[in-house]
């Protein structure tokens, strides 16, 4: 393969990776900070896509305003789900199993609610005005909207880094990950913190769904389609490791892009192969921090 097609595939991989990372970011955040494995995270992605459809196609909001409103909506619904349902099983023996069952049932409930609200017809959004085309440089075609998404991905990474390391809220979040009991003793409202973090995580999922809506079909069940790949990213990056998820998404996006061009009949095998090899030789994840969180 020549250099220019390799470059084209590389940029394709980058755009795939960014959406992968954006879905996985919320999943890994809530796992890292709250210790909750939210199997229904993909459903908040789907809700984001449907809400964006309503805000942009029906209410006629500007696309970016609509996407932010959809993220906010998914965040609020996420906080409700945490406060009304998930909170009740914290601290139970075998909590992990309960989490999976409970969040799995949330998938089914949200799917049906979506069907009742929006129907089963496929929905779809157009790309925002001005971003429908592409930058063309010889053989290299870079769709403007994909570039915008890559930009949003970078923005989320930088913002998350600033919030987590430079603000009091970020310090509380990191402390929640380490020791919730002590945090409570220090006078922090831990349940509220958990709810807010869950809301931020689902808002990230919702934002991704909204951004993906112009590129994909919005259908019931769309959540399931993204959750497995997001899960692979989270595991590869080290469960709960925000930066790890970013690197893992890049790795998977690029492995897939190159595999599709070089060995298309085996392409889908490669991302799983990367995961299997990682799980065998570095089970804590490729980018796990040196200190593993104590339970």
């Amino acid at each position: 393969m020549d250099l220019s097609s390799l470059l084209v595939q590389f940029v394709s991989g980058l755009s795939t990776a960014t959406l992968l990372f954006l879905v996985a970011s919320g999943l890994t955040l809530i796992f890292g900070v709250g210790g909750v494995f939210n199997f229904a995270h993909g459903s908040f992605y789907m809700l984001g896509a449907y809400l964006a459809y309503t805000f942009v196609a029906t209410v006629k909001l500007n696309f970016w305003v609509g996407a932010l409103a959809a993220a906010l909506g998914a965040g609020i619904l996420g906080m409700l789900a945490e406060a009304l349902i998930l909170r009740r099983i914290y601290g139970r023996a075998e909590e992990g199993g309960f989490q999976i069952l409970l969040t799995y049932s949330l998938i089914l409930i949200i799917d049906d609610l979506v069907k009742l609200t929006w129907g089963t017809e496929y929905k779809s959004l157009s790309r925002p005005p001005g971003l429908g085309g592409a930058l063309v440089m010889g053989d290299l075609v870079l769709p403007s909207y994909n570039l915008a998404i890559i930009g949003v991905g970078l923005l989320v990474v930088v913002l998350a880094w600033l919030v987590l390391t430079r603000t009091r809220a970020g310090r509380i979040a990191r402390a929640t990950a380490l020791d919730r009991e002590t945090l409570g003793v220090l006078g922090i409202n831990v349940p509220l913190t958990m709810t807010v973090i869950f809301g931020i995580a689902t808002a990230l999922g919702g934002l991704t769904g909204a951004l993906a809506a112009p590129l994909r079909s919005v259908t019931p069940g769309a959540g399931i389609e993204v959750i497995i790949d997001a899960l692979i990213v989270v595991v590869l990056g080290g469960m709960g490791n925000f930066w790890g998820a970013w690197l893992a998404a890049l790795l998977l996006g690029e492995v897939n892009a190159v595999a599709v061009a070089v060995a298309p009949e085996w392409a889908s095998l490669f991302s799983y192969l990367v995961m299997v090899v990682t799980l065998i030789f570095k089970p804590e994840g490729l980018f796990a921090p040196r200190q593993v969180r104590k339970v």
Binding site: Q9, V11, S12, S15, T16, V141, P264
Partner: peptide
């Protein structure tokens, strides 16, 4: 010949490979 998974959300890499 390209074989994405059923319900694959992202076809970007396939599209650029087909263009080539």
């Amino acid at each position: 010949e390209y074989w994405p998974k059923l319900a694959a959300p992202d076809y970007t890499a396939f599209i650029t490979a087909i263009m080539k």
